[in-house]
Simulated assay, not measured.
Amino acid sequence: MNIGIIGSGALGANVARALARKGLSATIANQRGPASLAALVEELGPTIKAGTVAQAAAADIVLVAVRWVDLGRALGGLPAWNGRIVIDGTNPVEFLDPDSPDAKDPSNPLAAYGIKAIDLQGRYSSEVFREFVPGARVVKALNHLDVKVLTQPEVSGGQRVQFYSGDDAEAKAEVRKILEAIGHFAVDLGSLAVGGRLAELPFGPLAATNFIKI
């Protein structure tokens, strides 16, 4: 299983930690280059290596773990995806400068959390995301819970639930294997149009819902 991670922020780094805990290999990359990841890969051990964005994007299964507003910059100019699997770990939110007027906007119910929902004009986020990865088989996953729990799949005597959804059965099966390999209980929410909406932060009905399979 050849895994690439684009983005080394909270999501990308914690997925790398979850993989490393189980001895699984991956290549992690960011826009600043492999040298900027030296401390992280030293922490994680020999199964996780730093690479360029192009190297991470060349994997069979690629997690995109960048902020929504950075998608164009992070994914622009990459080679054709040619049916490879891309995990959409993003959510359509903007992170606010705490000193900005937006951070104190009383009309924004999420201002207290430091974020603002991005208006997608009625579209669901993976529908928009697919436009950044033409030709890829997109699976939505790893986006609906606090990233800190990704390395804590065993809890309260059971397994933490991770939702996933997609329009390609084979691609979903491969992503399910990854979720199960890092110790989570994987639950298929169906197509992107259905499941993606359900688990999409900030307003999906299942967003931030922490189920435990006993």
Rank of each mutant, 00 (worst) to 15 (best):
G9K: 09
N14R: 14
N14D: 13
V15Q: 06
V15T: 14
G23R: 07
A26I: 09
R32Y: 10
G33D: 08
S36C: 09
S36N: 10
A39V: 11
A39K: 13
L40T: 08
L44Y: 02
P46A: 12
A50D: 03
T52L: 07
T52N: 07
I61F: 00
L63S: 08
L63N: 03
L63F: 15
A65L: 02
D70P: 00
G76I: 05
L78P: 06
L78Q: 11
G83Y: 04
T90P: 01
T90D: 04
P92W: 06
V93T: 11
L96T: 10
P98V: 03
P98W: 03
D102E: 15
P106E: 09
N108E: 10
L110H: 12
L110F: 15
A111E: 05
I115Q: 04
A117S: 13
I118T: 10
L120M: 11
L120T: 09
Q121E: 15
G122N: 00
R123K: 15
S125Y: 07
R130G: 14
E131D: 14
F132Q: 05
V139K: 03
A141S: 12
L142D: 06
N143H: 04
N143A: 04
L145W: 02
L145N: 02
V147E: 14
K148I: 12
V149E: 12
Q152N: 13
Q152C: 10
R160N: 06
R160C: 08
F163W: 12
Y164G: 06
S165K: 01
D168E: 11
D168I: 02
R176V: 07
K177C: 09
K177T: 14
K177S: 13
E180T: 10
H184M: 07
A186N: 09
V187L: 15
G190F: 02
L192F: 07
L192N: 12
G196M: 01
L201N: 13
F203A: 13
A208E: 11
